[in-house]
Design a protein around this nucleic acid. Structure first.
Length: 312
DNA sequence: ACGGAAACCTGCTGGC
DNA sequence: TGCCAGCAGGTTTCCG
């Protein structure tokens, strides 16, 4: 799935295309995409219809549209891309994608491509949600107050911690929580309630940069080392954002269908058997909580194994 | 509070 | 050529 840099790339593209526009109509295909919205797809479609898109916001890997209804309070249309979700801006005449799960007809803005005008009777612009594996979801939610967030955050995002790009992100506080975690440091990095936005790719990249094996107990690492890991995560995600995110295939694309280029800059993730950029030792691949982890055997030695290892 | 596994899906790749 | 196992950027939930 898109991690923080990919989701932010999508957010920026979305904002430039749809902010200020009106949702004329919404269609959900099947009921799985709105499974987290208990009243069901029809109620959600009715709720968003006629709303103005006031802003496009993000925390970690969650995106939401701040919607202004003709009458009543602002609310959020919350979007999670799961493993394979895409948000695309398309002319309505463009044929439906094979895994199209939702579409929103937009009015009140510029046309999709330069030189085209929105003539009377012409089809307009659509925001489309395409999702092959259907782990992504769309849901409606009220906005609640949150520090550093003038528009608030969706209530159902309450358990998601600030990501490293938010003003409310407090690195020393995260370090203190991690120090008390008797779990693998990689698990802590992936815990969205501790710090959000980091997924499997950037966790491995951060650990490689910081020269720490992901199975080291967080509680066995010094404040200095934990801070180094967290700063490495922020740094590698900063650089990935500049490159437009990481694409391995057509599953991650921005709203214009373009890929990111950060895969060329990865130092560990997906590089099993290829030389470490620091010491030339071949990168190893290991299983970790039912997924793959990549690391340098020399720069990132495994913790001592055995009962009681790495415990204070 | 934490670890681990399973569940939720579709599609692609590599080995036999 | 076909079949099947394994794998993929994530989150939630349940069990111990």
């Amino acid at each position: 799935m898109p991690e923080l840099p990919e989701v932010e790339t999508i957010r920026r593209g979305l904002a430039s295309h749809i902010q200020g526009r009106i949702i004329a109509a919404a269609d959900f295909f099947g009921d799985r995409v709105t499974r987290r919205y208990l009243p069901g797809p029809q109620v959600l479609a009715d709720a968003v219809q006629g709303c103005r898109i006031h802003a496009v916001q993000r925390r970690g890997k969650y995106l939401w549209l701040v919607l202004e209804p003709p009458v009543g309070e602002e609310f959020a249309l919350v979007i999670h891309l799961g493993m394979s979700g895409q948000l695309l801006i398309k002319d309505a005449r463009h044929p439906a994608e094979s895994h199209l799960r939702a579409q929103f007809d937009l009015t009140g803005g510029p046309p999709v491509s330069h030189g085209e005008r929105e003539a009377p009777g012409a089809t307009g612009t659509q925001l489309r949600f395409v999702d092959q594996r259907t782990f992504g979801s769309l849901t409606g939610c009220e906005l609640i107050a949150a520090s550093g967030r003038p528009d608030g955050v969706p209530g159902l995002i309450g358990h998601i911690a600030p990501d490293p790009w938010e003003p409310a992100y407090d690195l020393p506080a995260v370090v203190e929580v991690m120090r008390r975690r008797d779990s693998a440091v990689k698990r802590a990095l992936l815990d969205q309630s501790l710090v959000s936005g980091i997924g499997n790719i950037y966790a491995d990249e951060a650990l490689w940069l910081a020269r720490v094996h992901g199975e080291r107990r967080a509680s066995s690492l010094s404040r200095t080392v934990l801070a180094r890991v967290l700063r490495a995560a922020a740094e590698v995600m900063d650089r990935a954002l500049v490159a437009g995110g990481t694409s391995f295939d057509a599953l991650y694309v921005n709203v214009n269908g373009a890929s990111g280029y950060f895969d060329r800059s990865l130092q560990a993730y997906g590089r099993a058997g290829r030389p470490c950029a620091r010491c030339q030792t071949p990168i190893r691949r290991e299983r970790f909580t039912n997924r793959s982890s990549y690391s340098c055997p020399k720069c990132q030695p495994r913790p001592r194994s055995g009962v009681g290892a790495e415990r204070s």
